[in-house]
């Protein structure tokens, strides 16, 4: 945790509301971004953001300070989002894990990273179109994969911090990131192919990833304090 976080947390633990306001001002947009990315609903995302800080305030005394404040905060947010989605049954997204289990084994061995052609940069219109497709692909990910990707892309958390925030192993973080990005790259691949620029799978030079997937059996859901 940054020095400023430490100081604010220490003061907030003593009941200093200004310090707590400082923490909220610092993290509310990031918290909201995570919540929105998970639940895809602005009102619910705002409610979850507020609820997250209410929980932080109530349970701040239990925060051990061994990890960063933000990993603790993000764990609370992700848990609230998961609770919300399960309660509201709004998450009709394809569960990527289930899909992996149903898939033929030889279908999961490799994936192709599309290559961009240097001489043909994307126009603003192309970027918008591609951006929409990526957003759709993101929305189609399971909650677990979205959570990992959010923490990585928005918060820039390290694998280690993501693992702490979600209560899962670092290997699971890497595995989920790998598969989430595979789906997003498929969106890019589809787009490039429509433009006649795609590099079909199996083309010499196409990059195949080693799946090296680790069993994702650990901690389907990050644990408390949210449990709280």
């Amino acid at each position: 945790m940054g020095a400023d976080d430490s100081n604010l947390v220490r003061l907030a633990k003593r009941g200093d509301q200004q310090a707590f306001r400082g923490l909220m001002e610092r993290y509310k947009r990031k918290v909201y971004a995570i919540a929105y990315g998970m639940v895809r609903d602005s009102e619910a995302a705002m409610d979850i953001s507020q609820e997250a800080f209410i929980k932080v305030y109530r349970y701040l005394e239990t925060f051990q300070g061994q990890s960063s404040f933000y990993t603790w905060l993000y764990r609370i947010v992700v848990n609230l989002c998961i609770d919300h989605m399960r309660k509201e049954a709004k998450h009709d997204a394809l569960d990527y894990d289930d899909m992996l289990q149903r898939r033929a084994p030889d279908d999961s061995e490799a994936w192709v990273v599309p290559k961009l052609l240097d001489h043909n940069p994307l126009s603003a219109l192309d970027r918008k179109e591609l951006s929409e497709r990526i957003a759709q692909a993101f929305a189609g990910l399971s909650e677990k994969h979205r959570a990992v990707l959010m923490l990585r892309e928005i918060e820039g958390l390290s694998y280690e911090d993501i693992a702490r925030a979600l209560g899962i192993h670092k290997g699971t973080v890497m595995s989920r990131l790998h598969h989430a990005r595979k789906n997003l790259q498929a969106a890019l691949q589809g787009y490039l192919e429509e433009r006649g620029e795609g590099l079909p799978a199996g083309t010499p030079g196409a990059l195949h990833a080693d799946e090296g997937e680790e069993t994702d059996a650990v901690a389907d859901k990050a644990a408390t304090p949210s449990g709280a």
Partner: peptide, 25 residues
């Protein structure tokens, strides 16, 4: 190199997309 460009492009576009709602809220 081209594959890395593709990964960076998708990552950048996703980040932009994910940050928009918080900027507008």
């Amino acid at each position: 190199r081209q594959a890395l460009d593709g990964l960076r492009l998708v990552s950048g576009l996703l980040r932009e997309k994910l940050e928009q709602p918080a900027q507008a809220a």
